[in-house]
Design a binder for these strands. Structure first.
Length: 271
DNA sequence: TTAGGCCTGCAC
DNA sequence: GTGCAGGCCTAA
């Protein structure tokens, strides 16, 4: 479900409810939702949340003594910020109870996501961001310079998180449409003008999506249960067969890396 | 590179 | 019933 803009919106809606608030306890409903299984989360009791942070699609909550929780929402993960009395929804796997009376509930029907516990922020960083590229909101052209002569196709490389962290199926298709690049274009053969353009549109589309609270295709909601409003701005994702908004030709659909990919056969050409 | 697996829910 | 879904990992 969530890509960078949705995770960022969850972070932004969550932060004011957890910052400088003391943890009253953690209830683990489903042990195997957390890594490592049996992590000493009770040590969080009495600690104060001092920071939230996001890199790519990963969301971190950091306590005053450094203990860190990393949340990955997978496809169907949700963070629900509610008062303790609210009825517990199905597939609620972990509940962080705060002294304010607020509960942060992690819910994930498909369980592709998860919660990771680290005794320190440094360890969380080393483990969780080591293999990731720079955050997609902050990429620059120089971050993609190593693409020159490299192998691999655009869509796969953009989805991999190793070059850029935060893009998923929606925003890759949107970015490639905006940059007029074919998803199967070899990255090593991009011109520097094309790379400059790509970096520009990636940042632009993500900034706009963040500004609208992300994209709700079906069930994404932020921590306060509000949907994102970017769906009506989508140019490619979900529009297979519909006319290209630039040239009018029907958008094509194909499978790349077993993900449905939508692109314009006229506007988006390989080199 | 692709296919399959992990899971549940929903549209058809 | 079938196929599909915003992620990501592994194996062939």
């Amino acid at each position: 479900m969530p890509e960078l803009p949705e995770v960022e919106e969850v972070r932004r809606t969550l932060e004011p409810h957890v910052m400088n608030v003391r943890v009253a306890g953690v209830e683990v409903v489903r042990e195997d939702f957390m890594t490592p299984i049996g992590a000493p989360v009770q040590r969080l009791t009495g600690r104060i949340v001092v920071r939230t942070w996001r890199h790519g699609k990963k969301l971190f909550c950091i306590a005053d003594d450094g203990q860190t929780l990393m949340i990955h929402l997978g496809m169907s993960g949700r963070v629900d910020c509610v008062s303790a009395g609210v009825k517990r929804e199905l597939h609620t796997h972990v509940i962080v109870k705060l002294e304010s009376g607020t509960e942060v509930r992690l819910r994930d029907p498909r369980r592709f996501g998860g919660l990771w516990y680290y005794p320190s922020f440094e360890k969380a960083l080393a483990k969780e961001t080591g293999g990731l590229g720079p955050d997609a909101l902050e990429i620059t052209t120089s971050d993609l310079m190593h693409w020159r002569g490299a192998k691999g196709r655009l869509k796969q490389r953009l989805l991999s998180q190793k070059d850029i962290a935060g893009l998923g199926n929606i925003y890759v298709d949107e970015s490639l449409w905006l940059a007029k690049l074919h998803p199967r274009q070899e990255v090593g053969r991009l011109t520097s003008e094309q790379i400059v353009k790509l970096v520009k549109v990636i940042r632009q589309v993500l900034e706009r999506a963040v500004g609208m609270g992300g994209t709700t295709v079906r069930d994404y909601r932020n921590a306060l249960d509000q949907p994102g409003r970017f769906a009506k701005r989508l140019k490619a994702y979900g529009r297979g067969g519909k006319p290209c908004l630039r040239c009018g030709k029907p958008l094509k659909m194909l499978k790349i890396a077993s993900r449905t990919t939508v692109y314009c056969p006229l506007c988006q050409r390989c080199r």
